[in-house]
Design a protein around this nucleic acid. Structure first.
Lengths: 210, 210
DNA sequence: GTTAAAGTGTAACTTTTGTTACTGCCAAAC
DNA sequence: GTTTGGCAGTAACAAAAGTTACACTTTAAC
């Protein structure tokens, strides 16, 4: 755990804080597709992301989803922060996008460390800032762009997060995350293919130039 | 200022903190329609809302707007918090929805107080939580609901914030805030009127039962 | 090998939303 | 009083997105 922390959070956390994290934190590994938090859950610990990626989803009345954003190496979950402190239920679902390694920190430490360590405070505020910014980008996408542009952004984002220009998703899965229908996704993907920007295969999409 | 603070933030802030706020804070009054923050501005002080209401807006490439949420009595601007700490430009525009009274706090104090006062930390985290929740509600509206439902929510929200069932807005103004066109708003308002839920006048809308 | 299930392609159609254009009305300015 | 500009109503049309239906292919299960 020490190595993980040094690699990912050195220059961010003070040495004394790193020691404390090692004392109380527990290492957790989750497989791709595994659910970390469900809507309505009470959250009892806070994740620090070491490697992999986690997608954060919102759900509508019918149980359909919308992808909000991804968490990556060095990130933490801002929702969890507020849930921990406010003792409220989770408003979102968190699912591993890739095989992921996390350090879980008990929520009692949250409050203590925000008083004690300046580096922790900065980290927490920085996280809030990043998450708010990502929420704004999500709002921009939904409110200001058409589905074809949203699809392109989605594919670009997915490529960045997985670091792979071959995207292993079905049209149905993409439709869920964009909160639209499979037929619409197929239609728009076909158009992108005919423009030479992607190549379509069963269960996967190759990004050529987006 | 002492009275304002006692009325709105007692039980929230420690006495020592209230004293400090009085020392360094300045009272500010803004008229309805007045702009407080523009996109791209660097923010140098943090507002505590004493009375009135402020609307927070996002802008697209063409300069068209989208209403994100309102700030009310006892609120502060989460965007400002992160902007102050991160020294980044504002991502949003803030405009007074009503005549509004604020206490402005220099940003230098932010960092100091988060270390010093537990009540201040709680207030800041609470603010983040509320703003994140409101952003989620905004996302729900845009992503999951049709324009007719969004319009109803908008009218309900406006009634709540202004505490007045007579809404003094033109169709064009509503269209801007919902990021749609005037014709669409007129069409949907007319439908609501024919259902007996509202009454339409020039420059205003009376909410009967929504 | 046969069957079943999941994934994709596509046509035809509906609904929702956005656009253009034109009308009349009201209120402030002259 | 007349003019002017902003506001609202509405029709007609276009574009975007969602829906239904069905064909065909691939893969997994039996």
């Amino acid at each position: 755990m020490l190595n993980y922390l040094k690699e990912n959070f050195t220059n961010i956390f003070e040495d004394a804080l790193i020691e404390e994290i090692i004392e109380v934190g527990t290492l957790k590994e989750v497989k791709e597709g595994e659910k970390l938090i469900e809507i309505g859950d009470y959250v009892r610990s806070m994740p620090l992301l070491i490697s992999g990626a986690i997608k954060i989803l919102r759900e509508d009345e019918d149980g359909d989803e919308l992808l909000l954003y991804f968490l990556e190496r060095g990130d933490t979950c801002a929702m969890t922060l507020t849930c921990c402190l406010g003792q409220t239920k989770s408003e979102i679902r968190a699912v591993a996008e890739l095989d992921t390694t996390l350090i879980m920190i008990p929520i009692q430490k949250m409050e203590e460390w925000t008083g004690k360590y300046k580096s922790w405070r900065n980290f927490v505020f920085q996280s809030y800032h990043e998450r708010l910014t990502e929420m704004l980008e999500t709002i921009d996408s939904i409110a200001f762009y058409n589905m074809d542009e949203r699809l392109v952004k989605y594919l670009q984002n997915k490529k960045k997060v997985t670091n792979d220009s071959l995207i292993n998703s079905t049209h149905q899965e993409i439709a869920y995350e964009l909160h639209t229908s499979r037929v619409v996704v197929s239609r728009l993907l076909k158009k992108l293919e005919s423009l030479g920007k992607i190549e379509l295969y069963r269960n996967s999409i190759k990004i050529v130039s987006l």
